[in-house]
Design a protein around this nucleic acid. Structure first.
Lengths: 187, 187
DNA sequence: AGCTTATAGTTAGCCACCTAACTATGTCAA
DNA sequence: TTGACATAGTTAGGTGGCTAACTATAAGCT
């Protein structure tokens, strides 16, 4: 089995206990213990599930990035697309996509063909082996997702989605806010 | 401002729509559209929040790994620990911790001192500059976490935690299950 | 036609993660 | 006491992210 890389996202193995949180709250009065714990737990669940998925994919010599590229290709009617379009849809840079495609080509899961009309473009196509790889991986993937989610009934699932969505919509709070600040009158 | 690395976790920018999901469901009958969508959304929220946090930390020349090490040190009564203990608590390999500490040492946010009794060990201590860096970063961090979470009231937050927990407890489903399978009778 | 600008893809160099293998030191039991 | 095993830390080599800079091609003005 191939090595696989764990996600780079913080692995919050050691979310602080109440005592430690109090020490921080004393120094930083803005601290809201409940909010911080919830935020850290959300990050942890995301990371650990991502790592677990990677572990499953690694049994098939795939990782999330390469696997997702294959899925994007399978979605297309002619099983093909371009590096730029794939980078955009996968949410990675074009440079990263070049690397992912290099690996997939090495394993013969995709083919690269120079496009006819626009000679800057390259057509990436899912090969038979690529489709076969997905046919290997996907049934177990869907089965595991079902097992994972079976502890929630339908209304609980909807509820979870809605709660996540409301937090997600606030994610811009981490962005730089100095521009607006500068326009405010000084004392 | 420093470059900062986005999390390696899949950025599911392009979660499939119902039509595409149907195409997959035709080929892979195990597919449960609602479950897959929920799972992918959970991964996406985790990744994007992680990236947003990294963006904030990058304004202070930190990233999650280095920042978390500083926090772990600040928790300690004597502001010091060892590379092994830090690796364990941060959930990264000892090799990765060596690299993180190299960077923190370069920025003089920690100091390395050879331990007296066990000469294999090295004592890592948070420096004055390290503490000052945290004092810079943390108020804004806590403020942003509060803003992020303010869209949920207390009972909704508790509810979210409990739903996440129930999914999280099933994460072992992604682990290799062939050992048990092999012991089953064949047809 | 010829400039300028935009787009497609790659390359180079950095970071943070991993495993495996290595060195040095400590521990423990025959 | 010495040989086997365990532990602390580093190094080497691989992966997959990033930005910036580069080449080649296309498109659009004037």
């Amino acid at each position: 089995m191939a090595n696989y890389k764990l996600a780079a996202m913080l692995q919050v193995k050691d979310i602080p206990n109440a005592e430690v949180m109090q020490k921080f709250a004393d120094r930083y009065p803005q601290t809201d213990v409940k909010n911080v714990m919830t935020f850290l737990n959300l990050l942890r669940v995301g990371t650990d599930l991502s790592n677990a998925l990677n572990g499953y994919l690694a049994e098939y010599d795939l990782l999330q990035g390469r696997w997702w590229v294959l899925l994007l290709l399978m979605r297309e009617d002619n099983l093909s697309s371009t590096p730029s379009a794939l980078a955009e849809k996968a949410g990675v840079s074009r440079a990263t996509m070049t690397g992912l495609l290099d690996g997939l080509l090495r394993d013969k899961l995709i083919s690269r063909i120079h496009a006819k009309q626009d000679r800057r473009q390259i057509e990436i196509r899912l090969t038979k082996q690529g489709q076969a790889k997905l046919d290997d991986v996907m049934p177990g993937y869907y089965q595991r997702v079902n097992q994972l989610m079976q502890s929630l009934n339908e209304s609980e699932t909807m509820n979870l989605m809605s709660l996540l969505q409301r937090i997600y919509q606030q994610r811009h709070v981490f962005e730089n806010q100095t521009v607006e600040m500068q326009n405010q009158p000084r004392s």
